[in-house]
Amino acid sequence: MKLTLKIWRQKNQNAKGSIESYQVEADEHMSFLEMLDVLNEQLISEKKEPVAFAHDCREGICGTCNLVINGKPHGPQTGTTTCQLHMRAFKDGDTIFIEPFRAKAFPIIKDLVVDRSSFDRIIQSGGYVSVNTGQAQDGNAIPIEGDVAAKAFDSATCIGCGACVAACPNGSAMLFTSAKVQHLGLLPQGKVEHETRVQKMVAQMDKEGFGMCSNVGACEAECPKEISIENIASMNMSFLGSVLTKED
């Protein structure tokens, strides 16, 4: 299949970028990133600079790949990362727009690669259980209802790709932050610090320059792990409760 690609090229963080046009011959069984590999091989053979894009595991779990394809983070399929998207989702002759994740808190490094270290700092602000190695009691000492563990897992399944931020018209990181708050807050081990955690993480999130949630729901729709927007509502409640009732 013959495709026209409209790709965002930007030399570095401070350079002015623009959309460039490329032609590429692809096979419908290729993954989207393999199609870009083909393009890059083509560019290299012409001694041109290949397109920089982030990727690693190519099996939908590391959260590195992050393309906006035709306006949608991770492309047209739901519950799919860019690396799992295959070319059979497109037709011969299609024009495909490929752009980087856009948000002030995700500055562009080069072409389609962005800096998501703001996510790391949100986790560092409190996204953990304060337990040192060796302090643990037996794993079965506290039974956890199967449904609760499953719900915590659903929140914990976040891969930290940032599609929620990219999809959100406000560039808000509420889905990412709330998924972590919920994952830990639901489990008895994480509940102990829940009230402090939610305040610290929200404060860090605000500091990073993410926008505010207006419950649009684009984050949930584009999340490759289909993390529920209910996490956000639960975090709002936890935050309110914590601010209003906690004594310090």
Partner: peptide
């Protein structure tokens, strides 16, 4: 250790 860290193992 992992349970104490909040790893949501199947139950």
């Amino acid at each position: 250790q992992c349970v104490a860290q909040g790893v949501p193992f199947a139950r």
